[in-house]
Each structure stands twice: as C-alpha cells, then as structure tokens.
C-alpha cells in the first residue's frame, strides 16, 4: 500500500526554486531516503509533506487522502510524526514530560485545568522512551541533554501517537559517527517491528545506503534520480553531480554488506501484508 504519494511538488522562495516538480511514493514499511547536497531542497520537501510549508504546485496524499497545504497539526492527527533538522523539543520540561505532551495532545486532554500533568500518560511515555533508550534519563531536563540525546527524545515524541509515517530530517545531524550508526539502526529496528514508513534524509552515505529501501536524489531542487540503492548508485548523472569519491565508496561498501541479506524492500512489504 502506498502510504505517501507526492506528485509534481514545487516551491519557490522569491526567484529561487527550492523544489521543482518532485514526485515519489513511499510504501508501507519502507525506509525512503531523500539525499542531495546542501541547499538541494530536502528540508523544503519535508516541510511541504509535514505542512510547515504550503506547496506552490503539486499534491501530497497520505494513504490516498489529499493533505496538500493542510496545517501541521492536522497532518499529525492523520498519523504523521516528524523530527526536525534542528531538534525541536520543549527545553524547560523533563524528558518524560516532553513525550507526555504528545500523549496529552493525542488524547485531547490539553485543556484540562485541574489534574497534574506530570501524572498523566506517564507509563506510556516511559514505554516509548524505553524503545529509544532514554528511559534512564526520563527525569532530566530536556534542554540540558547532549544533542544526540535530544534527538532521541524528539524521536520518542514523534513515535508517541503510533504514526503511519515518520518524517526525519537529518536525524543524526550533530552526532558523533558511532552515535549516528546506533540511532539509525535503532530507528530501522523500530520501523521493521511496527511496520511504519519512514521518509528521511541524511548526509552520511554509510547511514543512507545501510538502511534505505529506496532513494531519491535531489540537486538544486531538481529530482535527479529515484530507485533502489543499487540503481541510484549506478546512475550516471548521480555519479557525476553527487556521489563521486567518498560517497560512491560508502555506497559500494554498504550495498555489498547488505548483499547477503534479503532485499529489505521486499521483506518490508511481505511483513506489511
């Protein structure tokens, strides 16, 4: 089943066309990566899918339903969780409270004036934090955590309402290399076990080629290639403008490492059925 269907998306800022005629589809259980150099338009794409930006043209459909130009909070209600390139969390709250906020919103309890917010949905919040490995720090103030941990909290917030689709804009930006690999492995694990789909972007080619089922390559707003990791790697234009050198090496390394496994795209689809 196609969870996300994007077609002909376009956005310009003044004279600059940040995203131009981009189309792709994300299947259930798939990890779909958008890659491209700085300023390629990746974040702009995420913002149009998540509702933070209204596209100039084109449409975004979520499980068949048109959500083009809807407000982020509506899109969230329809089952889309997201993380941002620069993590957005509630810095003055504890880790647990950050996740509890998502539950309060999900259950429509935000306007309650009398109960103590700290006690509501605490168990559920701790369970989600457990999955991202942050339960041990549940009582710490979120704003004082190491950046990598803040990103994990953000992931927990995004997972709280059991979304169909997770949007992750550079989930590992600002992390140490070891942490990056861990976090992506963790995300991939969660995705495989719960069957949600993920749209993510990443500058680390090792991370991308290790986990992505499909890739889309953007360059200055233009969609250069779309396909499986192997197809993208072999695409002549991608080689020329983007992958050359270290990127190509990482791609080759990761694709070889995965050659022994089942093809992840097929496996994911098999599970979803």
């Amino acid at each position: 089943m196609t969870v996300l269907d994007v077609s002909g998306l376009r956005k310009a800022f003044g004279g600059l066309t940040a995203v131009d005629e981009v189309s792709f589809g994300v299947e259930a259980g798939q990890l779909f990566a958008i890659i491209g150099p700085n300023g390629a338009g990746k974040t702009t794409c995420f913002n149009m899918v998540g509702g933070q930006l209204r596209p100039d043209r084109g449409s975004v459909r979520l499980a068949g339903r048109d959500i083009t130009g809807e407000a982020p909070r509506r899109i969230w209600r329809l089952g889309v969780g997201r993380t941002f390139q620069v993590a957005a969390t509630f810095g003055s709250m504890t880790v647990a409270e950050n996740v509890q906020m998502a539950f309060l919103s999900h259950h429509g309890r935000l306007r309650a004036l009398l109960p103590s917010a700290r006690r509501l949905y605490r168990e559920q919040a701790l369970a989600v934090l457990e999955r991202v490995g942050m339960a041990g720090q549940a009582e710490r103030q979120c704003g004082l955590l190491a950046y990598g941990d803040i990103k994990r909290v953000e992931l927990a917030i995004a997972l709280a309402h059991q979304p169909k689709l997770l949007l992750m804009d550079e989930p590992t930006a600002g992390m140490a290399p070891r942490e990056r690999i861990e976090l992506m492995a963790l995300t991939a694990g969660i995705v495989r076990e719960s069957g949600i789909s993920v749209l993510f972007t990443e500058h680390d080619m090792d991370v991308v080629f290790a986990h992505a089922d499909r890739l889309l390559v953007l360059d200055r707003g233009r969609q250069v290639a779309t396909g499986t990791p192997a197809e993208v790697r072999d695409d002549a234009e991608v080689q020329r403008i983007y992958l050359g050198g270290a990127g190509a090496e990482a791609a080759a390394r990761q694709i070889e490492a995965r050659a022994g496994e089942q093809l992840p795209g097929e496996r994911a689809e098999g599970e979803a059925r």
């Binding site: 933070q52 909070r73 969230w76 969780g81 941002f84």
Partner: peptide, 9 residues
C-alpha cells in the same frame, strides 16, 4: 514548531 508538529493548536 514542536507544538504544531504534535497537533497542538
């Protein structure tokens, strides 16, 4: 930004 992304009006 985060409020908006967890459904808070």
């Amino acid at each position: 930004l985060r409020c908006d992304a967890i459904g808070i009006n």
